[in-house]
């Protein structure tokens, strides 16, 4: 306590009080002192340097005080992002559906005698190329056995093999049990498109039972012939990718790439009614 009574302390206290009073009064009256201005000239360059350090540390304190707020904000943003992703996803689905319906309308305009029933694929066999799948609609919607199914681009997919009240099973043209009467659009050469085990894995099928002198070329479009009354005449099956002549059997066959994208289907169109083709 001796220091409090010392002359030095009392003088320093008075000086400090005078400084405080003078500079506060000057500041309040709007006069910026020369000493303050001069000091700022001296300190500002150093202050800028330390400010750089401060900027580098900027925001770290928020980890302590604003953790809960940031966590809640993060949760909220995640929720919003999920909602937006859902919206984007549904918008994409709607656009895809819209495109399919638009293409279907074109098909309908081309084939006025066709009656359609769209159905979602609700089940499929495993593997890259599904050949048998389950549809979510059945006899209640007018779908029955041996009705052809087509894709939105009017490419042939296959036919209904079994039907219940609310479901139906279908097999595609690349399935080994499938056979479709077909002909070459360019040369009119007739044959039968059948499923082949090895080609099935690639998503292709085979145009077999061709005449040995049949005029078939790579790139030719293969259409349904309408023979057998399961498929209407004129549906696009696919395009010839390879022509092979079997010397021993003296037959020619071709590999056909289906026009419909069979592996990526989510819904199909069942042709429930059409005018039967009667061969002359």
């Amino acid at each position: 306590m001796k220091f409090f009574k010392s002359k030095f302390f009392i003088i320093t206290l008075i000086v400090a009080a005078v400084i405080a009073a003078t500079f506060t009064a000057m500041s309040l009256l709007g006069y910026s002192s020369y000493i303050k201005t001069g000091l700022n000239y001296l300190t500002v360059p150093v202050q800028k340097l330390s400010d750089l350090v401060g900027r580098a540390l900027d925001g770290y304190s928020s980890y302590i005080t604003e953790f809960d707020r940031l966590k809640a904000e993060n949760e909220e943003l995640k929720k919003q992002m999920d909602e937006m992703l859902d919206e984007v996803q549904s918008a994409k689905a709607l656009r895809s559906e819209n495109d399919e319906l638009r293409r279907m309308l074109e098909v309908k305009k081309e084939h006025l005698d066709y009656k359609f029933e769209t159905a979602d694929i609700v089940g499929r066999e495993d593997g890259n190329y599904m050949t048998v799948f389950t549809l979510g609609r059945g006899q209640n919607n007018g779908i029955d056995r041996d009705m052809p199914i087509i894709a939105s681009n009017s490419g042939l997919i296959g036919r209904i093999t079994d039907a219940g009240a609310t479901w139906s099973k279908a097999c595609s043209i690349i399935d080994t049990g499938s056979s479709v009467g077909a002909f070459d659009e360019r040369s009119r050469a007739a044959g039968i498109v059948v499923g082949d085990y090895e080609l099935r894995l690639k998503g292709y099928c085979r145009l077999a039972y061709l005449q040995s002198d049949a005029d078939i070329e790579v790139g030719d479009r293969i259409l349904t012939s309408g023979v057998g009354s399961v498929y209407p005449r004129g549906l696009i099956i696919g395009t010839v990718t390879e022509v092979i002549y079997d010397e021993s059997l003296r037959t020619k066959y071709a590999t056909v790439k289906p026009y419909a994208e069979i592996s990526g289907l989510s819904s199909v169109t069942v042709v429930t009614s059409f005018e039967r083709y009667i061969e002359d």
Binding site: F9, T12, A16, I19, A20, T22, T24, L39, N40, T43
Partner: peptide
């Protein structure tokens, strides 16, 4: 004591506050 007064004055000068009470407080 001198350092406290100077530091208080410097703080109030460098800082943007209008009042210069720190010299007294620091002392």
């Amino acid at each position: 004591s001198v350092l406290a007064v100077c530091a208080g004055f410097l703080l109030d000068t460098v800082g943007s506050g209008g009042f210069t009470l720190s010299p007294l407080l620091f002392l």
